[in-house]
Write a protein that binds this DNA or RNA. Structure first.
Lengths: 215, 215
DNA sequence: TCATTTCCTGACCGTATGGTCAAGGTGAAG
DNA sequence: CTTCACCTTGACCATACGGTCAGGAAATGA
């Protein structure tokens, strides 16, 4: 098996570019369609149209609708995990949780579709990503609870239940993506402006940090 | 047309009971199926099976899938509006917002399916209940903002942005229904116990009320 | 008993969907 | 140029879906 090492070591040529570009376009279209119609309501034809490809071409890159969906869901999960690094190298809750709120609010603005797909997946009982919940998410959660508990022990914040604090952080930040349409309607039908997003982030941070006694 | 007044004044007999009971069973089954599969993923056959009726019978009581869905969505909205009365006859934020959180958390526990259907509907752009958002919900929101602003003016709480406070209340309380599966997974696969629900309610109330400077 | 209204349901239909396939196109390597 | 791996796609298929309908059952009132 000495040849294995070079299997995917073709120098990046047009072929590779085509594949990468098409997969990217399909995933982007799929994320939007799955978010707007749900898994059951989404059709491969619609995704194909939005990606500008014939439907049969989708099945060349992604064997089934489920495969495509799985890739979309995994993506937002990884983005969120990256954002979670804000939490780690922080001396206290003001910096750590503040940065985490900032990061999650930014993602809610830049990746609203992914957030909705994740929400939909969990609401339907997580048929596809149950293993993520039980392994990666659970481990991440326990780790963060430890950090929060340490801050409590160091009297950098009030002794709140860390678990419910995390739920509040997830709920509040993701609400701006998942319920973006409702928020937009209550904003006179217009999307939040840059200024309004800053106001939202500041409000959330202020209420949460005061709520846990960190400020 | 003098007879019109008595059209629906038949004394409650078996006929009426049959209709009422079947509609109830169908709506209950539909709420569960729509919540677990989304509108697109739900099938009339599945709803019929769960209600214990032949599919054709569903179409006798509800003309189309959309009609049935509309009824399910309206129901949770009315339940939430009822709960909102907690807000009104309260002297200050501790009582008003405290009772509102209690009420919404109770609904998240007793009507998780309805909450999910609402969330799904809004995430998909509110194709069916857009008018509710623009009329009833907007009016309700403005009213509550006025109440909160009065409390701020009376220095019963910190001057937070009332709108984002409402979003936080909605997000946090509904999270326990919409993401109930995720919470259950992080709870070792077991649903929250009575004690854990009390803990959740207490945590949310404590963090929110301290967050707005009401305690 | 008879007439009338309401309720029930198996069988059926047109359509749309996920997925398949065979035939052909295309660019890079030798 | 030839070869070969990769890419493209129109046409097609089986299935499942929402919805219809005709005919019968059951309850009600006279």
């Amino acid at each position: 098996m000495t040849g294995d090492a070079q299997i995917s070591r073709l120098k990046p040529g047009r072929r590779t570019d085509i594949r990468r570009e098409n997969e990217r376009a399909i995933l982007e279209a799929a994320e939007k369609v799955f978010a707007e119609a749900g898994f059951g309501g989404a059709t491969m034809q619609l995704i194909a149209d939005m990606a500008g490809l014939p439907k049969a071409n989708l099945h060349y890159y992604f064997a089934t609708k489920e495969d495509l969906y799985r890739r979309v869901v995994s993506r937002i999960f990884e983005i969120w995990l990256d954002a979670a690094s804000s939490f780690d190298d922080a001396p206290g809750p003001v910096e750590g949780i503040g940065a985490y709120i900032d990061a999650k609010m930014d993602i809610s603005r830049t990746h609203p579709h992914g957030s909705k797909v994740w929400a939909s997946e969990v609401m339907h009982g997580a048929p596809v990503i149950q293993d993520y919940l039980e392994t990666t998410l659970r481990a991440w959660t326990e780790g963060r609870i430890t950090v929060i508990q340490r801050w409590i022990d160091e009297e950098k914040m009030q002794p709140v239940n860390p678990r419910h604090l995390l739920y509040m952080l997830w709920a509040t930040t993701q609400h701006y993506a998942d319920f973006g349409h409702q928020i937009q309607t209550l904003n006179g039908g217009k999307p939040l402006s840059d200024k309004q997003w800053r106001e939202a982030k500041a409000s959330v941070k202020e209420m949460v940090l005061r709520g846990i006694g960190a400020i």
